Computed example of a mutant assay.
Amino acid sequence: MRPAPLVALLALLVPAAPGSAGEGSTDCLAAFVASAGDGRRIRCVDGDPACDSDPTPGVCRFEVSVCLNAPDPERPRCAPRDLEAYDVANVQPDTDPRHDFEFETLQNAVDLLGFPVAFDETELCAGPVAMNLPLAVRVQRGGARYRAFAKTLRGAALGPGGPLDVDGLPMKCVPARGADPCDGIVSTLDQLERHVFTGCTRDTCHNAPGNGHSLALVPGQAYANLVGVAPDNAAAAAAGKLRVDPGRPDRSFLLDKLRGTLAPAEGLRMPRELPKLPAKQIALVEAWIAAGAPAVGYVGGLGCEP
């Protein structure tokens, strides 16, 4: 089934046709359509409902679609063409830490349109796909501070002779004035959900049950899905492990997955194919489990320490 046509999509989203490298005669062959931005780029202050669809502090979320062969009155010289493919730029292979799995999700959505696309197949849109931009946390003298995070989405519509329409969509998430990484955090569990698990909750990972697992780590769901729950992995379950065994870090599969201390058949280290979490974050997970994995309060009486 084809996704919604461009006209319907534009009723919900802000059109983004940024910086095309093609000439006016090809600028309508592909375009990014985004839920935020000024049509050329997205710059969002974390927590601003006008652009950020994620209520979690420290993360900006936008929805982006790709639309093909979409006639544009502002580009009257551009007419739909036969398209062989559409490529979302991404670092390969997916084991490279720079590989973006959200870009991969968008590529997969575009591929479902079915190629080649004929010139008379117009207003074809794939998506929307969520783009999550987590603010970096910089620990410095006097405390921790948020730091802006940016990335650029690039794509190209390809014809029989090569690229026809090349576009880029710069996206940037900036912290709100005076925002502190510990604002609103009232427990160690809160801190884990916002500062540790955020890298695991992309659309291709643990944002919801699925993607080959039953574990969602988003705020409000992580605790019930972790504490006292047997893992899906048969080898870990047979060894008597729980995802989180309160008071028993040595029998908590979550900690094994983060450290990469896994027995045969227990799968891969997490986050999968990305750099290992900082030692301080893993130590916080261990301290939380050792303290009984409480749903409220801080372990060790230390409070929030990014």
Rank of each mutant, 00 (worst) to 15 (best):
I185H: 01
D167N: 12
A136F: 06
V299I: 07
A150Q: 13
K276D: 09
F101M: 08
E305R: 14
P49N: 11
D54Y: 04
S20W: 10
T201C: 09
L215T: 09
V285M: 09
V66K: 10
F32V: 04
Y223D: 04
F149Y: 11
L169K: 02
P306K: 01
V88Y: 08
A144H: 05
P116S: 09
G199E: 11
L135P: 08
A291R: 07
L258A: 15
G159W: 06
C182S: 01
A279Y: 03
G24R: 13
V227W: 12
R145L: 14
D82K: 06
D256G: 07
L68W: 10
L113V: 11
L113M: 08
P116G: 05
E286H: 05
F197M: 10
P219V: 05
A208Y: 13
L12Q: 14
E102H: 09
P231I: 02
P97V: 00
L164Q: 12
D48E: 14
D120R: 12
G22R: 08
D165I: 00
D87P: 00
D48N: 15
E63D: 14
Y223P: 04
R141M: 09
A148R: 14
A85Q: 11
L302V: 09
A293Q: 03
C67V: 08
V137I: 15
T105V: 11
G228N: 06
L242S: 07
P97E: 03
M270S: 08
G220N: 04
R269G: 05
G22A: 15
C28T: 05
M1H: 14
R138L: 15
D52T: 06
A295I: 03
F119P: 07
C78G: 08
A11K: 06
C44H: 08
K241L: 15
L9G: 02
V227L: 12
D94Q: 12
A283G: 10
G184L: 03
G210D: 08
C44T: 03
E121D: 15
L258N: 05
G220D: 06
P57V: 00
A208M: 11
D180I: 00
V14E: 12
P73D: 09
V88P: 11
L112R: 15
S25R: 15
G184Q: 04
G220P: 02
P128I: 02
R43H: 10
T198F: 13
A79Q: 13
L68Q: 05
P246F: 10
P231R: 03
C67I: 05
R61I: 00
N233V: 07
V139K: 15
P49M: 11
G127Y: 04
E74S: 14
W288M: 04
G162F: 09
P271G: 04
D87W: 10
V296Q: 14
L277F: 09
I185F: 01
V229H: 04
V299K: 02
V33K: 03
K172R: 15
L112F: 10
E63N: 11
D96E: 09
L13M: 15
